[in-house]
Design a protein around this nucleic acid. Structure first.
Lengths: 212, 212
DNA sequence: AGCAATAATGAATTATGGTTCATTATTCAT
DNA sequence: ATGAATAATGAACCATAATTCATTATTGCT
């Protein structure tokens, strides 16, 4: 009997993360992934069903990690929803700050139709947890009741995704901590400064049409 | 001498928009585009250099249209920056509300590495105009001076992109007008309601680190 | 009508790269 | 040490689909 040597499964996955991040899924070759992992191209198929399967596995890792951390945060009753929002954003940023390649893949392959269905399962778990926080804040009277938080969660998600992509593409250009703080501030306070806020927010702009 | 009949160039482009939107760029076949346009597959190459060129042409149309409209809005001195923000968001939503296929392509192929460089030229023109509005609002004291508007513009861009995608994917699920209003509100006022705002916004949370 | 000149065709070519599988290598139990 | 069992290989296979180009069709001109 023969036992598998080393950890080829993980090697291949790590290699795929690098290759997908650099070339994008569709321009990545199995042969390149195998080469970088130090295995023969055929060996890839001992560990993964096919190319799609590798990508899906990468995403599963990303989202399972994020969701389980978020779950702990959400469940903690000692933290206010406001701080939970901050924590949630930190969670996402930390994930990708330490792993730029994942950030790139996260962004560019997020919509890949080949893995769409399975991927949505993973992501929805995360988004639902996030929406819970928003809901909680609303119920405690901390967040405005005028917003539809199903929409807001997606807006925030998309905004973060895009910023992470820009950052991952050109790390030197915008410090991640700056991005992080700006996002937190925008979400909480908006862009109007206090004076303008007094002037405008009380107008009859909030109506049923906001969808609540 | 022979003159080209009909408008095959436009037919091919329209057909490509439909096909790319349905299958995604990489899973779209030239033969399918040609078939839908009612021409032979070889004819596509009379009008476009190659497949990439078609995609690029679609994006050029999207962004040139958006930018020239935005330019008019930005140049209008009678409109307050606050209303310009609203107008800008309306611009983007209107563009895609009337053209779901474009919305899908906009979202899914935005990061396609094959056209990355040229595409960025088009988009930056639009983003720079948007940033001008934010800057103008800041200078007039309407928008908070604590934010880095280069970051904010990208956050908003990414958020819109993602919402348009969700909407285009499942039109019935979220009415576009509801999305539009929620986004406008979040950007201006944030999610904290007024009471919370009083409580939190004056804390020493705004520091140099915001990057201004 | 006859003839350039260009448009249009679509079968054949070509390139690519995912996947398979006959072959070889390695490991472990006896 | 031997051989059964599984790991690993990578060249060959195959499917796909972008692109080309020899051929045919159409148009306007004289």
């Amino acid at each position: 009997m023969r036992i598998k040597a080393g950890n080829k499964e993980q090697d291949i996955l790590n290699s795929a993360i690098k290759v997908f991040a650099e070339y994008g899924y569709n321009n990545s070759k199995i042969s390149k992934i195998a080469e970088l992992a130090g295995v023969a191209s055929g060996s890839v198929y001992l560990y993964y069903k096919n190319k799609d399967d590798i990508l899906l596995c990468i995403f599963k890792n990303i989202w399972d990690g994020l969701s389980s951390k978020l779950e702990q945060l959400v469940k903690n009753d000692l933290i206010s929803p406001i701080d939970k929002i901050d924590g949630m954003i930190d969670l996402v940023f930390d994930m990708f700050a330490n792993n730029m390649d994942m950030g790139k893949i996260f962004v560019t392959e997020h919509n890949n139709p080949r893995i769409k269905n399975e991927l949505n399962t993973y992501i929805n778990r995360f988004l639902n947890l996030g929406q819970e926080v928003l809901k909680e804040g609303e119920q405690q009277g901390l967040f405005t009741p005028h917003l539809n938080y199903k929409i807001i969660r997606s807006f925030i998600f998309g905004g973060l995704r895009h910023l992470i992509h820009l950052w991952a593409d050109d790390q030197a250009n915008i410090p991640l901590d700056q991005i992080r703080l700006n996002v937190k501030s925008l979400i909480k306070y908006g862009i109007l400064n206090k004076n303008s806020y007094e002037t405008f927010s009380t107008k009859n702009e909030y109506t049923k049409i906001y969808g609540k």
